[in-house]
């Protein structure tokens, strides 16, 4: 209970579809059982098609997201190009490992589409940067057990964007409803090669 990863609560999930990826998070911010805010998004955009989801200690979520904002801005200025999701994932990994013995208490998730090949890409990390490449889905946060169950039960290969949206939404909503530390609405991003759709889900407000 006093683990830094479960003080504030929160959940995030990314899924691969056919020529598309989806990433979604809940909106709750809490202090143990006390809900402080119901508008704390955990997904951040770093290029037209590269997204990062961060769950864990809220102060680290904010700090790390801003750290990557700085790093990616510097990358874009130096290289005059947007960072590719795969490259961004490596940047996340090396940045987390830099703090090997005093880690950021976050469980990041990267989702995006490669600008060159159009290939969908998702991956997750532990708090010190070990990358988990997955062909299907990545979950993180205090509802990760529940998300594993719903994703494993609902996900199927080659979902079209609309079906992927329905799948990831149901997976997240039903998972956070069984986790007291997550919920209070959700953000869902559907990422296609040259289109990103963001939707707000109301969800249970308890």
């Amino acid at each position: 209970m006093s683990s830094p990863f479960s003080i504030n609560g929160g959940a995030c999930v990314a899924m691969r579809g056919k020529n598309c990826v989806a990433i979604a998070c809940d909106l709750r911010l809490g202090l143990q059982s006390l809900t402080v805010s119901n508008n704390f998004p955990k997904i951040f955009q770093y290029s037209p098609t590269a997204f990062l989801g961060l769950t864990g200690l809220a102060t680290d979520v904010s700090t790390v997201s801003e750290l990557f904002r700085y790093k990616v801005n510097m990358y874009r200025l130096r290289e005059e190009r947007d960072i590719a999701p795969k490259t961004f994932a490596q940047l996340v990994s090396s940045s987390l490992y830099e703090r090997r013995f005093g880690p950021w208490f976050v469980s990041p998730v990267v989702a995006g589409i490669d600008g060159k090949s159009g290939a969908p890409f998702i991956c997750g990390f532990d708090s010190i940067g070990c990358i988990d490449y997955a062909a299907d889905f990545i979950v993180s946060g205090t509802a990760s057990d529940q998300l594993f169950g719903t994703c494993e039960g609902l996900w199927e290969p080659d979902l079209e964007p609309d079906d992927l949206f329905e799948t990831i939404s149901q997976a997240l909503l039903n998972a956070v409803d069984r986790d007291a530390l997550s919920g209070w609405g959700a953000h869902v991003y559907i990422i296609e090669k040259d289109k990103v759709t963001k939707r707000l889900l109301k969800g249970r407000q308890d």
């Binding site: 057990d145 529940q146 169950g149 719903t150 039960g153 939404s169 149901q170 039903n174 069984r178």
Partner: peptide, 19 residues
Amino acid sequence: AAASLIMPFLDNQVNLKNQ
């Protein structure tokens, strides 16, 4: 052991929660 994995799936598919 896997109650936390299975229960939200059942909520959704049996009790049609969030549908």
